[in-house]
Design a protein around this nucleic acid. Structure first.
Length: 675
DNA sequence: AATTGCTAAGTTTTT
DNA sequence: CTTAGCAATT
């Protein structure tokens, strides 16, 4: 028996109920991860082999965190759990997508793909959509590639009989494009993020023995953030668990904020439909926030229809009242908040990192950044452009994907003329045309004598040189011993990529920075899968990187800094002091939500934001706001009326004695005194 | 091949 | 107001 004494009664029940379906409704800040890790440890102490346990999370970050905590828990168990080769037995803890990659690497040949398929990232996917679109252009010009990409994704995730919102025309269009899109990917031996789920489902449905194998392996299944699962993910979980029924899903319907991305809140609301015998356990004791904050959160969320009723409570005291502030415009809002943060820091010795500023849309970050920089406050902005969207990284990964699988058209076309090697747009267009005529990849067209004899000698030379380059560097991947890092370094040297970067940047400093980014990524290439062949190791490296694009970004959170973050990305985080800005009608709730009928989801978003705060919560709105360069009048959000007045500090009456000018000089004096 | 200039659009983004 | 994307120009 493992030690569950550190858990509260509900948590303990959740951790101790191992057989049959369980739904853990874990409100914000109720110790969900703690409960889950104890549950895994408890299973193992009850004699269940870790290898029979599968825990699925939504982000790699969550998976890593849980893996670490579980490992720690398992070490405490008296019985040592090691395999014959001395390695510890571990449960499988990963995302849906990485689980599917593992399954597909074993079975995808059944569907006619090759085992070394590549995974297309978001931008590569968009590229293919654009290609398909331009190929059938003419009749319908008013199609936006991005929009179509989103539609395709939702179509795939909704499954064959799911329904996706959208008008008839665009759905018909999407269906048509999907066929061409899918065959383009197939021809390149590539799959996209959604295919990972969809193809795995196909394998399970068409090849029962593959499903059986998985069922036998994973006899205990857990799914975290269950409110965010889409139809395909539900299907996957259902297939794995409907025989043995040992499935534990954990989530909070009140924190479902990704409906627009295909998440089905009904999965958590209608759990009883598929698992009538499910045991529902509610975790309602919150260990994060003060009572005032929880009362506000409860009051807001209870206005949502169709939810599983919950009432968060806290053993902490009432705490500070909420502060509702109104400002003339977003600049004053930003300035005042920065002043308040500085006041906390100087008068109360509260470090920057204890503060966060939450906003609905990314553009709202701008005035905040300006004010923070002006006051010399350190901050970090979460989100924005990802490390892996940077040109040099994308180039590099495209090269690597080409080495693994030169038939991957999207990657090959991206890098064929980088740096310029005489393969101009015209040449590449013609090669692409030839490949389509022959129903083969661009690479095969490049290697086809008949094709390249159509070209001028100069272009032909360029093509041949490129083919030779790729083949030269692919060679070593088949050998048994190879340091991928030094191999990649040699390659970048060979093509003189640094020169290419210098050409693209006016400031040589920037080129150096980009090169450093590359070295960082290259230095991790040999980290995993030591026992594998170089080609397979490179494949694993690419899988990990495409599925876990934020890994690098997460690392640089160190240091004392204020966090700027959207209300969507703040889920799962907590801060002692939270400022929620721009709580205005049209922003939160966003104006589009009225049209789309997603007011409930906006309210949940508001709820998620509120429940991030541990000690103080300041909610502000502006009377005026610049939008697209013009001033607009703003009204406070209707959500604000849902917060009971007695929970809010009456700021106006308190503030009046201190004029803005006095306040400013007060802070100035304070800075003098401490500086 | 690279630069310039125009146009259009402007929530959220776990993989 | 910005900014991304694309066309047209040198």
């Amino acid at each position: 028996m493992s030690d569950l004494s550190g858990l509260n009664p509900e948590q303990r029940k959740a951790a101790a109920t191992l057989r049959g379906p369980v739904l853990i409704l874990a409100g914000a800040g109720t110790g969900k991860t703690r409960t889950l890790t104890h549950r895994v440890a408890h299973m193992v102490s009850e004699g269940i082999s870790p290898e029979r346990i599968l825990a699925v999370t939504f982000t790699n970050k969550a998976a890593r965190e849980m893996q670490q905590r579980v490992t720690k828990q398992l070490k405490r168990l008296p019985k040592s759990l090691t395999r014959a080769d001395g390695k510890p037995l571990k449960p499988t803890i990963c995302t849906f997508h990485s689980l599917c990659v593992r399954i597909l690497r074993r079975h995808i040949e059944k569907l006619g793909y090759k085992r070394n398929f590549v995974i297309y990232s978001d931008s590569e996917q968009l590229g293919v959509v654009k290609k398909v679109l331009s190929a059938i252009a003419g009749k319908d010009v008013k199609a936006d590639a991005r929009e179509l990409q989103g539609l395709l994704s939702r179509l795939k995730n909704a499954g064959p009989n799911g329904n996706v919102p959208g008008n008839e025309d665009s759905l018909a269009m999407a269906g048509h494009i999907r066929r061409r899109y899918d065959s383009a990917l197939r021809a390149a031996n590539a799959v996209d993020f959604d295919d990972l789920l969809v193809l795995t489902l196909r394998i399970f449905n068409e090849f029962p023995e593959a499903l059986e194998e998985c069922r036998a392996r994973y006899q205990y299944v857990m799914v975290d953030e269950y409110q965010d699962t889409n139809a395909a993910q539900f299907e996957l979980m259902h297939l794995l668990s409907k025989e043995h029924r040992n499935v534990c899903v954990v989530g909070d319907d009140d924190q479902s904020i990704y409906g627009w991305r295909g998440a089905e809140i009904s999965n958590i609301l209608d759990m009883e439909k598929h698992y009538p015998e499910v045991k529902v356990i509610k975790l309602e004791q919150n260990y994060r926030s003060t009572r005032v904050i929880l009362d506000a959160a409860n009051a807001v969320i209870k206005n949502n229809p169709r939810r599983r009723p919950k009432q968060l409570w806290s053993a902490k005291g009432a705490g500070d009242l909420l502060r509702l502030e109104a400002f003339a415009n977003e600049e004053e809002e930003a300035r005042t908040i920065v002043d308040e943060i500085e006041f906390n820091r100087m008068a109360k010795r509260t470090p920057w990192k204890d503060h966060s500023i939450l906003f609905r849309t990314n553009v709202q970050a701008r005035p905040l950044e300006t004010a923070l920089r002006k006051a010399e406050v350190r901050y970090h902005l979460i989100g924005g452009q990802s490390f892996f969207d940077r040109r040099e990284i994308r180039d590099f990964l495209a090269f690597m994907k080409t080495f693994i699988n030169p038939n991957d058209d999207a990657s090959l076309l991206r890098i064929a003329n980088i740096p310029a090697r005489g393969l101009s747009d015209v040449t590449m267009e013609r090669l692409l045309g030839a490949s389509q005529e022959r129903d083969c990849s661009v690479w095969k067209a490049m290697k086809n004598d008949l094709v390249i004899h159509e070209f001028q000698p100069r272009a032909r030379k360029s093509i041949e040189a490129f083919v030779a380059l790729v083949e030269d560097f692919r060679g070593p991947l088949g050998e048994t011993e190879l340091s991928l890092a030094s191999w990649a370094d040699k390659f970048l040297d060979e093509i003189d990529y640094i020169a290419e970067l210098r050409k693209g940047e006016k400031d040589p400093e920037n080129a150096e920075n980009r090169m450093r980014n590359l070295r960082d990524i290259i230095s991790t290439m040999d980290n995993r899968g030591e026992s594998l062949l170089p080609a397979n190791r490179l494949g694993k490296f690419l899988d990990d990187i495409t599925l876990d694009a934020d890994r690098e970004a997460d690392k640089e959170d160190a240091g004392d800094a204020v966090t700027l973050i959207t209300t969507h990305s703040c889920k799962g985080l907590e801060f002692p002091h939270v400022f929620l800005v721009g709580v205005e009608e049209g922003l939160l709730p966003h104006s589009r939500s009225a049209v789309e009928g997603t007011l409930d989801e906006e309210r949940r978003l508001f709820y998620v934001a509120i429940t991030r705060a541990m000690k103080t919560l300041t909610i502000s709105h502006c009377l005026n706001r610049k939008k697209y360069g013009q001033n607009f009048l703003c009204h406070p959000s209707s959500f604000l009326k849902e917060i009971p007045e007695e929970l809010c500090e009456d700021l106006d009456s308190k503030k009046e004695p201190v004029s803005v000018e006095d306040g400013k000089s007060m802070f100035a004096a304070m800075r003098e005194g401490l500086g």
